[in-house]
């Protein structure tokens, strides 16, 4: 046992005489360092399993693209131009879903029983930054998944690949916002759902999200199905997909296709990001501080 009241010095009582270097003293600096170290950890872990990550997020959309964009038009069941309308939807879906899964699943498991997150919560940073880091990381994940879709789409669709190149900047902004909205929804779901409810989450939340988000059809095309058109406006994916569609689909016979107005797209995405981020961080903080 130790002698009492011997104040610990700032040298080494652990790790066999390793000298202790200077560390920042400002809270902001410490928090920033911690934030980037945690982000780096997530990137390193994902980087090691890159193939598994890409397979997880890309396989399903690629099959969709192949069947609906290549096979069905190929056997005459849909018109040849459908691929051009479908691709932006699939890119949007992939981006949103990859980002959402990047937060939701790890968060459910971590808060449920793994508690790996505790080590990060004890890092010298505000708790909320741990959630922000997850959102940023998941956004990067979504962007990578969405980005990889493009070369794969060229490969799958072949001569059906038809994307306009004059709105690249809009496309980039849309992809970032789509990814961010997916990450924020993921944060909310991941902090609200218990591990035993994961199956339920997929069937009750993800499935409707998947099919009411204007992925497989353009929003304007729903004019004759008014009630459903209105319903789709409650799905953030609709705004992401329509925004990406606006940026990608080339003019037909010199006319731009009709999409949801850009101002509505920005509004829809903005509101979704703010609402889900606020809800998500609130539930997150409730789960990590009692």
């Amino acid at each position: 046992m130790a002698t009492t009241s011997q104040a610990p010095t700032d040298t080494t009582f652990a790790a066999g005489g390793v000298p202790q270097g200077a560390r920042p003293t400002s809270h902001a600096r410490l928090a920033l360092n911690a934030f980037f170290a945690i982000l780096q950890r997530d990137i390193v872990v994902t980087g090691r399993d890159l193939i598994a990550f890409l397979a997880q997020v890309l396989l399903q959309p690629l099959f969709f693209l192949f069947i609906f964009g290549k096979v069905l038009p190929g056997i005459g069941l849909t018109s040849a131009g459908f691929g051009a309308l479908l691709l932006p939807g699939i890119v949007g879906l992939t981006t949103v879903m990859a980002a959402m899964q990047g937060v939701a699943l790890p968060m459910v498991l971590d808060l449920g029983f793994a508690r790996e997150i505790d080590d990060r919560l004890l890092a010298p940073m505000p708790d909320v930054l741990v959630a922000v880091e997850k959102v940023i990381f998941a956004t990067l994940r979504g962007l990578i998944a969405g980005g990889v879709m493009f070369p794969l789409a060229v490969w799958i669709l072949g001569d059906q690949y038809n994307v306009r190149s004059d709105r690249i900047l809009v496309l980039l902004v849309m992809l970032v916002l789509a990814s961010l909205v997916g990450a924020c929804i993921g944060l909310f779901l991941g902090t609200s759902v218990r591990p035993e409810q994961i199956g339920l989450m997929f069937s009750l939340i993800l499935t409707p999200l998947l099919f009411t988000g204007c992925t497989y059809y353009p929003w304007a095309g729903l004019d004759s199905l008014k009630w459903f058109q209105i319903l789709t406006l409650f799905n953030p994916l609709t705004y992401a997909d329509e925004g990406i569609r606006y940026a990608m689909v080339p003019p037909i016979h010199g006319h731009d296709i009709t999409t949801l107005g850009l101002q509505w797209v920005f509004l829809g995405l903005g509101v979704s990001i703010v609402v889900f981020f606020a809800l998500g961080t609130r539930t997150f903080l409730r789960r990590v501080v009692s």
């Binding site: 790790a15 560390r23 170290a37």
Partner: peptide, 17 residues
């Protein structure tokens, strides 16, 4: 790294511990 320990020190401490 979460605790802002400099890289060199991190490596040395990890080995020692």
């Amino acid at each position: 790294a979460y605790h802002s320990v400099p890289r060199k020190e991190r490596e040395a401490r990890a080995d020692a511990l």
